[in-house]
Design a binder for these strands. Structure first.
Length: 448
DNA sequence: TTGACTCAACATCCTTTGCTACAA
DNA sequence: TTGTAGGTTTCCATGTTGAGTCA
């Protein structure tokens, strides 16, 4: 009796195993060994004589198209090849990650699933792939369930259908692969048998360090290039931090609230150091004092975010760049709408319905409006027309968000010098937050 | 198909000096 | 002695999105 290998709802089922590997667990219900599907390639190479029924007989697809790649893109691809067609490539937003994906697909000429976080992104991939290869591309997610040898899908749908999709694609490409590291989505990587894997992102590292888990499933980071090395291709840019002062009233209120918060954590001996410590604080705050401290912290943050003087500073910056395309980023929706009312510009938040969003973005592209106020919606995923000026009015300490926002004003081939302004309230915790997020981003700042 | 809901998942949320037990 | 690591598995709130349901 020869050994056989089948795909069974996200696992590999192995029968007649003589010497099982560590990753295999005996399942008495079916009298066979099981291993997570992602181990497929490793198992297959361990047992050359196995009868492999995991994938349907391989359907080589001919993709007649060759991309002309830039030098660094070629290098990235060859690294991926050297690594056995697996691993993650890290490139800034504007560096043409799609081209790399297309080249990867052409290279393997096999069934492929492209996974991306939003419907908009998978549609972009779909359109692009259909155009480049001249084929029909399937889509799973966003109300569709058409399954073809080349298919795009959202993370959500790929997760929901991993049991049935896991043995259909030899290659999986994860766009914005840092999402894959989260709890549920990681199951996609585990339940897919695909031996070839490509991750793409501009921001691999996560503050919660979960990206370390991607090593096992995606083959780790194999190529990285930052903004500095891309200089030749990108618009010239600079970063200017503008410190502003709270007015007396705000200062007073900020202090009061800050005190309440600090007093509590000092008394409870809560240290806020790592990214998980804040969770602990929340967990331990199931009491009136804790709640009060939490609310106070929230209030103080709010004050720093929406300081009156920031509005005036925005006015000043706008006057210096009249007519240039400008995006104003905020952390909360209220401030985005405040800016919208104050300067009579459109505001884009998660509350803005789809068609309206499109309309605003079109107007911005055509230059009918030159200023957009937005919360976090434009941070990732959406195809935003190029802007040359960015104003970060408030933001989190996330380096990812910061880079993404910077990426919004750094499109290749642009002649104009791009400027990112950061308006930060002095003597509040916002200053530290600002420094935290700047880690790993080229330091081209002049504080003024 | 659209449009409204609801629900679930994800991401961020931080900066400082205090205590205790253990390892080097 | 001096340094350093250090247990709750979950979720105060807000923002954002995708999937699913039902009219």
């Amino acid at each position: 009796m020869g050994m056989t290998m089948d795909f069974d709802r996200g696992t590999i089922l192995l029968r007649n195993v003589k010497d099982p590997l560590n990753c295999m667990i005996f399942d008495p219900r079916v009298n066979a060994y099981r291993a997570p599907a992602y181990m497929y390639a490793r198992i297959a190479s361990q047992y050359p004589d196995v009868e492999d029924r995991v994938f349907e007989k391989s359907q080589k697809i001919k993709f007649s198209h060759s991309e002309t790649l830039r030098a660094y893109q070629k290098k990235a691809i060859s690294k991926w090849k050297e690594n056995g067609f697996s691993g993650t490539i890290v490139l800034p937003t504007a560096a043409g990650k799609t081209h790399i994906g297309i080249e990867a697909i052409r290279l393997l000429s096999n069934s492929v699933l492209v996974v991306a976080p939003t419907i908009e992104l998978i549609q972009q991939w779909r359109t692009k792939l259909e155009k480049v290869f001249g084929i029909k591309v399937g889509q799973i997610g966003g109300g569709e369930k058409t399954f073809l040898p080349v298919t795009v899908s959202t993370y959500d749908s790929a997760f929901l259908m991993a049991e049935t999709l896991g043995n259909k694609f030899k290659l999986v490409i994860f766009d914005e692969v840092h999402h894959l590291a989260s709890d549920q989505y990681l199951n996609i990587a585990k339940m897919f048998a695909s031996p070839y894997r490509l991750g793409l992102t501009a921001t691999y590292e996560r503050t919660d360090l979960l990206h370390e888990k991607l090593e096992e499933y995606m083959g780790g980071k194999i190529f990285e290039m930052g903004y500095e090395e891309l200089e030749d291709y990108l618009a010239d840019f600079s970063i200017i931090r503008i410190p502003v002062e709270l007015n007396d009233e705000e200062e007073e209120e900020y202090r009061t609230n800050r005190e309440i918060f600090l007093r509590y954590i000092r008394r409870e001996r809560i240290r806020l150091k790592g990214p998980w410590d804040f969770e602990k604080f929340i967990m331990r705050s199931w009491n009136p004092e804790g709640r009060e401290a939490l609310l106070a912290w929230r209030r103080s943050r709010e004050i720093a975010f929406s300081a009156r003087v920031k509005i005036d500073t925005v006015r000043y910056v706008l006057s210096r760049h009249r007519g240039e395309k400008t995006i104003i980023f905020t952390e909360d929706t209220d401030t985005a709408y405040l800016i919208s009312r104050e300067f009579l510009v459109p505001a884009l938040t998660y509350l803005t319905p789809g068609p309206e969003r499109k309309e605003y973005l079109d107007m911005f592209r055509e230059g009918k409006v030159t200023v957009l106020a937005t919360s976090r919606v434009l941070d990732e995923g959406v195809d935003v027309p190029d802007a040359t000026i960015g104003i970060v009015l408030s933001g989190s300490g996330s380096a990812r968000q910061y880079r993404q926002r910077l990426g919004r004003i750094l499109r290749p081939g642009s002649e104009k010098k791009a400027v990112l302004y950061e308006i930060v309230t002095k003597s509040t915790s916002e200053y530290a937050t600002s420094s935290r997020r700047r880690k790993g981003v080229p330091n081209r700042s002049d504080d003024s």
